[in-house]
Amino acid sequence: MDVQVSVYRYNPERDDVPRMQDMTVAVPDGKDLMVLDVLERLKAQDPTLTYRRSCREGVCGSDGMNIGGTNGLACVTPLSEALKKGRLVLRPLPGLPVIRDLVVDMSLFYRQYEKVRPWLINDTAPPAQERLQSPEEREQLDGLYECILCACCSTSCPSFWWNPDRFVGPAGLLQAYRFLADSRDTAASERLSALQDPFSVFRCRGIMNCVNVCPKGLNPTRAIGHIRTMLLRRGI
């Protein structure tokens, strides 16, 4: 079976403006490929086609892109689900500068991640063994630590599109809450102070695009809600 693919192309050395290129690729009958498999076949045809990929199983977060209008990971999106009216349309993640084809410059995204100080802070001397944590305390981290930094959420968020330099965005805030929720972390107060401005957290308008696109099924909006509550409680 032949599949029609429309791919966003931009090579900074050759193109003044980006364009959509139509390509055709043969896929085996009776077998559902992933979008990444389709990309690999396209690249065999045209080696200049450029995208990131690594694990090909949805855990490394390299191949986040806009697939038929929705952000997702190419390696775990079946072609059958991605086809819209018989066509596969592939664009880079929206809202970030394009380096080439489907590869975006993620610096701003990473900067927002780093801003929340995504590491454990504990000002007491570590014990000789592990710091004890009950299963219930550990459960608080479920749905938070699994983030793969693919940027599907933040680049689907209109608030992040408008203020990518000042709104931390869903991915960064999910990590902010991951450390606020960790019973081993002692820096909650400093962490909250760093977020207490009109932009870092409060630009979230609860649109929930982040929840809809997260390939790991995580819920950044809920985490942001928890941070809001903590900030408001502190204010009282």
Partner: peptide, 11 residues
């Protein structure tokens, strides 16, 4: 663990 790795836990 001290760096923050979220290990699963026993009772």
């Amino acid at each position: 663990d001290h760096m923050g790795l979220p290990f699963s836990r026993t009772r």
